[in-house]
Design a protein around this nucleic acid. Structure first.
Lengths: 124, 124
DNA sequence: GGCTTTCTCAACCGATTGGTTGACAACAAC
DNA sequence: GTTGTTGTCAACCAATCGGTTGAGAAAGCC
């Protein structure tokens, strides 16, 4: 996934209004007018939010007379969780290994010359 | 999770520099100086990025003489994937149900008075 | 004490963001 | 054709963002 598309996706979901819109669209397609209805802001403002979501690839829009129904696209959501999960798992895997080291040091209490707490700080 | 904390978390990961920092920290704790080294920007700029990450709850910082080693916290990453996954799954579940409807209509080709494409657009 | 290292804070700057209002395009209904 | 509905575009505005430089706090080293 392109670097800046991931940035656009995270930027898009950084706004509570846009997250509300995504939540609404997860239940089914909706027009800008329907999406704007619950918010205390102009239709133009919601239209701008939809543009941000569309440019992030999170929604697509079709035509239907004057209406422009919006549809949630799940592919980019997948790529977002993939990114977040990758580094979360790397970190948690490291924590588990650290715990294992500490446990083995607990078993064998003779060696105390290393400090596993800072294994990541030390220079290569 | 508080609404604005989720906003802070997505905002934090919306910046490529901050995502790089998170990726680096997933491999192990590091000081601001170590984190700034690969970037073509001032240490002060990186320090600002770290503040954003800290306020989002994505990292924590300890003390160690003049050094302030940074540590990746995975809890907020968990909440981010939880949010994204919730709506992705809701949408995909709906798509699967829609496919099932279309398949059953394919079997029984006599009823054509309903248009499942717009099930979400209609008013409640 | 003085000097160096490491890092944060404060002030500033141009670009972007999230909202507004007004104009207007596209289409339906009469 | 005229009117009404739906939505976008353009211009504007205050606030925020991501960077800069300069000053200084906090700790170790001589």
């Amino acid at each position: 996934m392109a670097e800046d598309q991931l940035s656009r996706a995270f930027t898009a979901l950084a706004d509570p209004t846009r997250r509300d819109i995504v939540a609404r669209l997860s239940l089914g397609d909706a027009t800008p007018g329907q999406l704007a209805e619950p918010f205390a802001m102009s239709l133009q403002a919601v239209s701008k939010h939809l543009k941000v979501l569309e440019e992030a690839g999170l929604i697509s829009r079709s035509r239907e007379a004057q209406r422009r129904p919006c549809h949630l696209e799940t592919a980019v959501l997948d790529e977002m969780t993939a990114w977040v999960d990758r580094y979360r798992r790397t970190a948690e895997e490291r924590f588990r290994r650290l715990d294992a080291v500490l446990a083995s040091m607990d078993e064998d209490e003779s060696t105390e010359d290393e400090d596993p707490q800072h294994e990541g700080v030390a220079s290569p």
